[in-house]
Nucleic acid binder design. Structure first.
Lengths: 143, 143
DNA sequence: TATTGTTATACTCTATAACTATA
DNA sequence: TATAGTTATAGAGTATAACAATA
């Protein structure tokens, strides 16, 4: 197998595993009335308190799209807005306690859903996979 | 690091790499006026000629959603419908030559977009990653 | 003037329900 | 009766353009 073939096969495997994980995330989201994007929003807010524009940039979305996403989650009491104390134009976004609880529950659900697949690997293979994925994760890309 | 910690870190890395690859696919799709779902449709049709319901099942979507997706792509001349010769109720879906060309171009774009990230791994590491991803890919899950 | 955020608008994606045609 | 597909409807996700408020 040439190095070119490996690249093709690897891209294929990467795309397929992406769709597989996306399927799990989409299902768990749907069971909690959350879209994949909302799931991402909650993941980001887990340890950050960004302004609207920052959040949109993380997700690669327009700020107007962000407004709608925040509106709907805010209406459900899962997250909240607050004026940024240092810049009167900016609005900070953060999880409410209810949103934080939900995020924690979602995280456990995702882990439990992926664990069976990952158990097909031996423990030392799991460590290996982790080591191989890490270099691929662009620090600029948000979760 | 305990095995429990590895699982947590691995799930995290897997989800993050999923969003990263999804970002690439979404961008390339958008540049060609295609949604992520349309991209998947084209990937599936690349080597299959399923009926509407089969396609919907692959994607985990309702058949009515499928009708709309097919409509829009058909209007653009990228795919076509045909009566299934063995079952008068069923409709087969397949790529037109234009759709096939586009799919091929998209594939190359995706590979070229992911190649730089993958080049952070040494050749033998890429082979290793491929070997580790393969057991995770459920044959039941479509691309 | 430039930036931050919201709103109006239009289109795609999605599911549910109701329908037609075929098995 | 059951299955395959379409259509009507409604809501979420998305971007573009126009706007108000602040820097």
């Amino acid at each position: 197998m040439t190095s070119e073939d490996t690249l093709d096969a690897l891209v294929d495997a990467l795309v397929r595993s992406t769709f597989q994980v996306t399927g799990v995330l989409t299902r768990i989201g749907a069971e909690n009335d959350l879209s994949l994007t909302q799931l991402r929003v909650f993941g980001i807010l887990r340890d950050r308190r960004p302004r609207v524009t920052e959040l949109a940039a993380y997700l690669g979305l327009d700020k107007s799209t962000m407004s709608g996403l925040i509106d709907r989650a805010e209406r459900r009491g899962l997250l909240a807005r607050d004026r940024n104390p240092h810049d009167g134009r900016a609005v900070d976004v953060f999880l409410t306690p209810a949103g934080r609880d939900l995020t924690q529950r979602l995280y456990v659900e995702v882990r439990d859903a992926l664990a069976p697949e990952l158990s097909r690997l031996r423990p030392e293979q799991r460590v290996q996979l982790l080591r191989l994925l890490e270099p691929l994760l662009d620090p600029a890309a948000a979760r």
